[in-house]
Design a protein around this nucleic acid. Structure first.
Lengths: 259, 259
DNA sequence: CGGGTCGTTGACACATTTCAAGTTTAGTGG
DNA sequence: CCACTAAACTTGAAATGTGTCAACGACCCG
């Protein structure tokens, strides 16, 4: 059972203190061989710990490294001129914070930790050099970018066309699926977000998120205790959200393409 | 002056009838050498014409080719369970319709033409093979994907946090910039979208788009005649939208990284 | 114990949607 | 070239989802 492992938000109880990409999104790529992964790990800088609520990267910053979230949660966000925040990506353990840094000179978003995290740094130039030698690494990087693309497209649909209720349901379904809970029926996981942060993901107000959460609770669709969410009726919630996990799972289906 | 050239929505008055990537987003990549581009053109299938309003690709389809829009406009869109449409990307002359097909097995969106178009097909396997040999091509593909991510992230901010008025202003600013009108002051270009399609981009109702367009017209910020938009006061419009073209221009700034 | 963050609640304002006509424009065939 | 039709645009009135403002309570941590 991976339950405790997962709900702790941790992916890196590695045997050694050495940085490892095992269990990251990188390792989930169907294109990354073990050899590729080890090559990447060899250029990784030592992991460092970052407290919750810190800006890992700031908007418009020049970033020369890729930060990989080994442990803990973070988010990418953007600010509007009049001071509103929109979270454009939730980063769960194992995800890269700023893939763009590989080919872009400046970031177009900020990255902030949501919990205490462990972060591993991959120097841009070393990764680019590896990508030229190992096509599996190049493909993996492209695959990661396209995955983010798929999630962003889905969120455009949600933000543009779904009601508050549907958006919240969708977020819960998505996070449950991304955290590995693919089984139907029930699901329980840690969602280390305040209602205000959820509002910044959903493009809503924290007040309205609160009311919507209560509504779902009243219908016995979900339960919450602290930062733990339990989805009591996954089918019903997916129905409300119009959630189809297909957009999250590609690549796994095409694993036969791996070298 | 490129004015007529641009406003015709055409990028492919090529000398020969041979397919060409000159003038496409591919060619805009700071990583693509002339040799790389010619290699890609060699594997391209003959361009074909597609009428307006046709579904080039359907959601969940297995796509083995990348379709590049040589001429005309198209969009990527997704449908909600209850029948609402969200356009998640506007594809202008020179853009790739379904980059995802490179590494994914299934599409997560549909692609529909908005005007009569010319489409060029790049076979997936040929492109992948080229990407392994030419690092410039691999980088270009990644660069294209990251560019789409930047635009999608910006749209998440717009859809989540901007008012109808701001969103419309933002769309007009973005399209003006993407079509190459970087000069300040005025801008005139073709926007071949009905107000209903604009609504599907902005996550609004066509009725409300209409009212918002009229508002901008009444303030003398824009003028429209047919499908031609004229931005009369770019600075004011950018101010309203909080528009900063930075997210569109990366790569050009890093052109020194090209081989 | 105290102060701050987070969650909760109520009353009200307002942006946007919905519904249901019109009117204009563009395209098509006679 | 005109007549006809469908699509696109426009308008108004009413409904509604979500935001705003302001207060209070619960909880946690130092």
């Amino acid at each position: 059972m991976l339950d405790e492992f997962r709900s702790s938000g941790t992916l890196s109880h590695q045997r050694s203190s050495h940085p490892t990409l095992l269990g990251t999104r990188f390792a989930a790529s169907p294109f990354l061989s073990t050899e590729d992964r080890l090559a990447l790990e060899r250029v990784a800088l030592p992991a460092r710990s970052v407290a919750a609520g810190k800006d890992l990267l700031r908007e418009s910053e020049r970033a020369a490294h890729i930060e990989v979230l080994i442990d803990g949660w973070a988010c990418r966000y953007k600010m509007t001129r009049d001071g509103h925040r929109q979270i454009v990506a939730l980063l769960t353990p194992g995800e890269a914070a700023n893939l763009d840094a590989l080919l872009f000179t400046r970031l177009h978003y900020a990255v902030r930790t949501l919990t205490p995290t462990k972060v591993l740094t991959l120097p841009r130039d070393r990764v680019l050099a590896l990508a030229e030698q190992h096509s599996g690494i190049a493909k993996t990087l492209g695959w990661l970018a396209l995955n983010e693309n798929a999630i962003l497209s889905q969120w455009a649909l949600c933000l543009g066309r779904l009601s508050a209720r549907q958006r919240l349901a969708h977020l819960l379904c998505e996070m449950s699926a991304r955290l590995g809970d693919l089984d139907d029926g029930e699901s329980r996981f840690e969602l280390p977000l305040t209602q205000e942060q959820i509002a910044d993901v959903l493009g809503l107000t924290s007040v309205h998120v609160n009311r919507t959460v209560q509504q779902l609770r009243a219908e016995s669709l979900i339960e919450t205790k602290g930062r733990t969410v339990m989805i009591a009726d996954m089918d019903a919630l997916r129905q409300i959200a119009g959630f189809d996990p297909a957009y999250l799972q590609d690549g796994r289906a095409s694993a036969h393409l791996a070298p």
